[in-house]
Design a protein around this nucleic acid. Sequence first.
RNA 1: UGACCUGUGAUGUAAUGGUAGCAUUCAAGACUUUGACUCUUGGUGUAAAGGUUCAAAUCCUUUCAGGUCAUCCA
Length: 681
Amino acid sequence: MTEEKKSLNFIEHIIEEDLRNGMNSKNLRFRFPPEPNGYLHIGHTKAIGISFGLGLHYNAPVNLRFDDTNPAKEEQEYVDAIKKDIAWLGYQWDKECYSSDYFQQLYDWAVKLINEGKAYVDSQSAEVIAEQKGTTTEPGVNSPFRDRSVEENLDLFTKMKNGDFNEGEHVVRAKIDMADPNMLMRDPLMYRILKKSHHRTGDNWCIYPMYDWTHGESDYIESISHSLCSLEFKPHRKLYDWFLDQIYTQDIRPKQREFARLNLSYTIMSKRKLLKLVEEGIVSGWDDPRMPTISGLRRRGYTPASIRKFVETVGVAKRENVIDVSLLEFCVREDLNKIADRVMAVLDPVKLIITNYPEDEEEWLEAENNPEDEAAGFRKVPFSKELYIEREDFKEEAGRKFFRLTLGKEVRLKNAYIIKGENVVKDAAGNIIEIHCSYDPKSRSGSGSEESKRNVKGTLHWVSIKHAIPSEVRVYDRLFNDEAPDSHKDKEFMEFINPDSLKVIKGYVEPSMVDAKPLDQFQFQRLGYFNVDIDSTSEALVFNKTVGLRDTWAKIKPVQKQSNTSKQPQNKPNEVAAIDEIKRAGKKYTNLPDEKRELLKSKIQEAAKKVEIEELVPLYQTAAKKVGTRIATIVALDIVLQTKEIRPDDIAIEFISKAANDDNDLLKKEAIEILKKYNID
RNA sequence: UGACCUGUGAUGUAAUGGUAGCAUUCAAGACUUUGACUCUUGGUGUAAAGGUUCAAAUCCUUUCAGGUCAUCCA
């Protein structure tokens, strides 16, 4: 163990405190309890990372427990997939457990509760029980069956177990308090009748325990010390503890603690919604490389180490969060940079002819596999008179910031020679079909000559046409165009699907790639990280783009006018800054006293002069839940209209009217004033 | 109009009454046979108001904002 002082998260603080209070660290034990009803996704990795990370930190065992109490939704297929994914991530569980293994114990304890008058059989319908529950502001009423005798309860429970009743005829409920402010304490269900085969217990049971009755008791059976789950289970804690109180006799008593779940920008995380993407054919399956599932990420080329690093970096706390995908991307790049061999591939080719290079000559030049890893060694790449280079790497003439090939300028071909652009050949439509250039024979990389060391500003990657292997390359973009596709009250997440999330293109890779095997990872130099897809064969190579390289050039080059209208507007830096300014101001707006608010307003107005209406609309939409941002956006819109001297168009009107009907008075006031100003009803 | 939870730069997370730190993003620069990597530098922050204290992000009060809770789901 290193002496390194890492800051602790709040869960570790809790554990440290328990240890200080006399808990033996040998009694520490954690668990990860997935329900086997779907595939694991990046959100689950946080929970996995927390519990298994704690196990590693404290050298404590971590159980993998399948929470399989609902045979209607669960299948063995998912159990297998979950185990595979966790193992792939690099975590080792101690025991493999199943809630279903505890059905008998749970049943026995339920009998004990009935005997003690703490549970009863209710014979009402689901609807009636729901009605009697009351609401968050009104207490519920007792079931007429609440005071059945122990004998009757026992008899009915036995018959339920024996299959004498149909589904829905009876349930078992804990007898707690129908007036408790916590809805979960209002006589929660413990058992329901389900005449379904279970993937492990078969037809042994036709009554199945509910989550609340199962979870804490399972933790107890397994001697879990700290039972960590996500925040939405916070209200369940009271019940968790109540159930434990009924059966608890030993020293070790599990503790439930809750953390905020992971949200990723431009991503959805709900199993139900992911399933919809699969079912509607938006993606090719659960392992489609665009999916946020572990299997999708694996196929896309993400490494276990990068995902573990991501989870670790993201941290643990109790507040709602949205993590930017750029952090995930950073984590893969960081890992792949160290381990991926570099190769050359051209994805958008244009022919380059070296006029003074001998016709039939070919040379096999030495290329370094990975400058970050000396052990990676070298390989040979073939050079010849006719090459492909990236179309984007040539311009007939260009400004001084363009470091690539232009007419009359020199650049280096990576691992090869320095060349100079001479002239171009165009087709009838004016498209460049060939670039002619000359090379400096003495400038070969690694030859040791003066010329080989000459410094030219640009270096291009290339492939020899004769030797290159044509391959399929799948280039992915985010699946959704919206930062938070499932947080809009008035819009379905499906509306934000990016139609260009997959582009299949034909690329040319260097011949060393013949031996590439599925899931092998490479850096296509100057382009990004790519891996070999599982669809790939030795006859037809298929690559996935894992992630691009960081590209500072792309940010400064002028945006080309292209037809892809679905892309978000490429903001110029000062507009981005202005939008940020508005966002930031909005965040504070509602909390300020009036005078300060005026000050903030003038700030917003200043910033608003630099933006367009089109940029305000999405800002308003993403801020659906943030009142301050909505107000700031409306204030900004007002100024935009004024300074540009335009009347609001339909979009703007819709946008203002929506604001005028908002619950927040401040926002309402601002919006109504604008409507008045332009005489709109 | 209840109960519970949560508010720290753009994003995420530290500081447990004592110097607001780290990572990512962004910006500028150095280096470069990858406009990558690496390195240097820089910007933005404790929701608001009041109180306790020598000292408050931290404790108290109020306000504001966000979230969760009424499946025979987990």
